[in-house]
Measured scan of single mutants.
Amino acid sequence: LVRYRTISKIPQITLNFVDLKGDPFLASPTSDREIIAPKIKERTHNVTEKVTQVLSLGADVLPEYKLQAPRIHRWTILHYSPFKAVWDWLILLLVIYTAVFTPYSAAFLLKETEEGPPATECGYACQPLAVVDLIVDIMFIVDILINFRTTYVNANEEVVSHPGRIAVHYFKGWFLIDMVAAIPFDLLIFGSGSEELIGLLKTARLLRLVRVARKLDRYSEYGAAVLFLLMCTFALIAHWLACIWYAIGNMEQPHMDSRIGWLHNLGDQIGKPYNSSGLGGPSIKDKYVTALYFTFSSLTSVGFGNVSPNTNSEKIFSICVMLIGSLMYASIFGNVSAIIQRLYSGTARYHTQMLRVREFIRFHQIPNPLRQRLEEYFQHAWSYTNGIDMNAVLKGFPECLQADICLHLNRSLLQHCKPFRGATKGCLRALAMKFKTTHAPPGDTLVHAGDLLTALYFISRGSIEILRGDVVVAILGKNDIFGEPLNLYARPGKSNGDVRALTYCDLHKIHR
């Protein structure tokens, strides 16, 4: 019993810090008490220290592992850092350059016999395009090294910054494609005289377009951006097909006994025919423009016929181009109408809503002055909100995010209106959640004399007048207030005048 009563005193000691020596009952000389009392004092002292730490809000209350900052290894790049964003855009520009100039170089340097010394005699450094290609190869190699040090988000939505895990993730992902696209074939085969082989191998750079397509997928929600990307894709495919079309004609031209190829026909049409040795002929500019003209006309199913396939190889390629053109029509131009419709969806919704308003007016036989006010209010409210119901949009977000959005939407009023000066951010967040926005066209009466005042109004834009009878008592403008002081009276009061809008007004109100 003594032991039980001794232990039962522990909660009292913990909360009230009572010393055991003052209790005459606990001072009985028993061996059990002498053993338990020192333990009680020690526990009391420890609990006292913990309570003191909690009340003082000291940093040592938290466990040590929670006080440590997340460790980022040296030379690790955050995937959302500004440097990584700028670097990704730079790589994107280099990939676009590669997609345009690599097929052009591979096709127009394929057994090209233009006048001038061969590239091997001039030297590697004197070729501007080769120098640019070398810079692109170096940048792609540097990009691989950067990807080995860039964080990523795993399946659990955690940012991984450990170098080993980053390397394994990159090896399992895009490393092989990036490595093949970054191989400097110019340096590996330079001086061997195989410019045709170098041009063909350099087309491996186009593998990076797969990554670019995935990154550009984030802009699919913007109709104008999608339309622009589709047109660029169409032009890029036409450019690639033009390079292939020229390569076919250029390879067949020296081996044909009869002059029936499209390059021969082009030379005869523009007065620059090929001679018996295969030299001469149109310039590279004429060849490229004509090839691009043929691919565009074939892809769009126009086909004027002034550039036509004559050999079997050219006919087979033309059939493939027609098939590609039909697929592009289905996948690209078939979506253009939907994209344009999405661009004008706001206008369509406006006309639909206006039609419903006019049908309501016609069905209920609203008189002319009231009908005009109804239409003007709808037009003004639509121009202010673009038909978007803010309350319906915010309803799907958590309250903390709703408060931040409301604070942002009402920031101008909260910053410049005098009653809100000096208020804490928590108070402003709470008030912003209570605001209701209303609009009024010129001549609209917001409050009639004798109406119950259940709200306090803040003028965000425009001006109003307060009338008693036919006498203008006051004219209020931006950041002015009218209405009933909230919670100042037990019952809502009545208006002693009319409140009429002089201009288009936007008002925020808080109800009782």
Rank of each mutant, 00 (worst) to 15 (best):
G281P: 03
R356T: 12
F234L: 13
S192R: 14
G334S: 03
M231Y: 12
K272I: 01
N391D: 03
R71I: 14
V393H: 01
T424I: 01
V168M: 11
G267Q: 01
A125G: 08
A106F: 04
Q353L: 07
T113K: 13
C122S: 01
R429E: 01
V180E: 01
T347N: 12
E157L: 14
F296K: 01
Q341N: 04
L394C: 03
P103E: 01
N410K: 03
I96M: 03
R218I: 05
G267T: 04
L209H: 01
L414K: 01
L197C: 11
G271T: 01
F333P: 05
R71E: 13
V302N: 06
H380G: 08
N306M: 01
P103G: 01
N391R: 05
S194F: 15
S276A: 14
F108M: 08
I141T: 14
N312E: 01
L216V: 14
I135C: 04
G164P: 09
A106C: 01
A238I: 04
Y344D: 08
R205F: 01
E376D: 07
Q365C: 06
L409Q: 09
V336I: 06
A119V: 09
W245P: 01
L292C: 01
L370M: 04
Q353A: 09
R214N: 09
S105C: 03
R358M: 04
G199E: 10
S301Y: 01
V86H: 01
E196L: 10
L279K: 15
K202T: 01
N250M: 13
V226G: 11
H169Q: 11
A338D: 01
V321S: 01
L446G: 02
E115K: 13
T300P: 01
V226I: 12
L230Y: 10
N250G: 03
D268I: 14
I198W: 11
R349S: 10
G116L: 06
G346Y: 06
P118N: 14
V289D: 01
K285H: 04
F304G: 01
S412E: 12
N154W: 03
L109K: 05
I77L: 05
L90Q: 01
F108K: 02
I388E: 07
G267S: 01
S277R: 09
L187S: 13
T445G: 02
D186H: 14
A119F: 05
M256T: 14
W87L: 01
P128I: 14
A107T: 09
S105F: 13
R218Y: 08
F294Y: 03
D133R: 01
G325F: 01
E196Q: 15
P103A: 01
Q127H: 06
L299H: 01
G261K: 01
P163L: 05
L279F: 14
P117D: 04
L355C: 13
G422C: 12
Q365A: 10
A242Q: 01
M139F: 14
P82M: 07
V210N: 09
